[in-house]
Design a protein around this nucleic acid. Sequence first.
DNA 1: GGATTGACGTGTC
DNA 2: AGACACGCCAATC
Length: 108
Amino acid sequence: MEKNFYEQVFEVARLVPKGRVTSYGAIAKALGAGGSARMVGYAMSTAGLAQPSVPAHRVVNSSGLLTGKFHFSTPELMQQLLEQEGVVVVNDKIKNFKDIFWNPLDEL
DNA sequence: GGATTGACGTGTC
DNA sequence: AGACACGCCAATC
């Protein structure tokens, strides 16, 4: 552990390619945190304060639901950003989530 | 330094 | 299918 847990989370979150999404649990696992998926989400809450903007909109829960959209400037921002990248969002949930899901472990 | 918290995950009812 | 409960682990108060 040379970096803080937060920084590691931010790092992985920034690695998410455009038009793709990942889940908190996947990131946690990629960091070796395993079941500490909550920490990932918690870290993301500070992502807004992180200097290199973190694409938190590309990170959703395992169901592909935009759980953290309320933490953005505006709840609509998250969905808008995703749609901008070609991600289809329906009813606050990502369509074809499994299809566009980006696994950090696949890159790491 | 103990208790609380939390943008989660999985399993049950 | 929707709601509820418990578990995990680190940061913050």
